[in-house]
Write a protein that binds this DNA or RNA. Structure first.
Lengths: 110, 110
DNA sequence: TCGTTTCATCGCAAAGATACGATTAATTAT
DNA sequence: ATAATTAATCGTATCTTTGCGATGAAACGA
């Protein structure tokens, strides 16, 4: 298969998983970190900073855009990427709430 | 390929990506939510609650354990799973700090 | 003891993810 | 006009993930 059965899970769980999946690769974390540090980034700058092929970086950017975490603006021949604050806030809230759950399992086990 | 080049990224970025990847499937989110709600869970209870095959659930549990997010205690023929608070706190701190980054890209773009 | 329950593991099939080079289209520089 | 830069896309190879049924091993119950 290789296909996730999204239909059997809640919308919230699917949302959380989609954001987490987008963050689930070190290259994408590194890209987002660059965008945060420099406030915005020309695609070529990212290619220079991360030792992966240009086509590979472009693919990761595409996934981050599909997840809504970034947006790109065409500036002539170049493309300027930056964090999409709206979706970023949604992701922060969703993951934050989830990770803030009470994990204490009492004295009954473990 | 299909193989991630972990060696070219920082330890922190790989750590973040590993946690996020573990959270990057709705079944694993659902499992963690069950463990949080019930404080602990017998494996069979999870299989009853989530409409996936027992072997599939077992595999997701294995991945969550590999990521350190849960731990299992053998109780006779059954196995009791619960959140591993130590790693959970690490994940919460790492993801929390990352997502709390200032995402304002000023007026220069986008 | 023998069957049952419980869960992990194996083997398999289908689909997705990762990475690269080559190509393409658009803009910019000469 | 021509060449160079920039970034997306295509095609391809390989590895990983997802999912299931079947099998195994361990503990439990009758």
């Amino acid at each position: 298969m290789g296909v996730t059965k999204t239909d059997i899970f809640s919308r919230e769980d699917n949302l959380l998983a989609r954001f987490a999946k987008a963050l689930g690769h070190p290259a994408r974390i590194a890209i987002l970190r660059l965008l945060v540090q420099r406030q915005a980034c020309i695609c070529g700058d990212i290619v220079d900073e991360i030792p992966l092929a240009q086509s590979t970086i472009s693919q990761h950017l595409k996934e981050l855009k599909a997840a809504g975490l970034i947006k790109g603006e065409i500036e002539g021949a170049k493309v300027c990427y930056c964090i999409d604050e709206t979706a970023w806030e949604v992701a922060k809230a969703a993951l934050g709430t989830f990770l803030d759950s009470n994990t204490d399992c009492g004295a009954n086990c473990c």
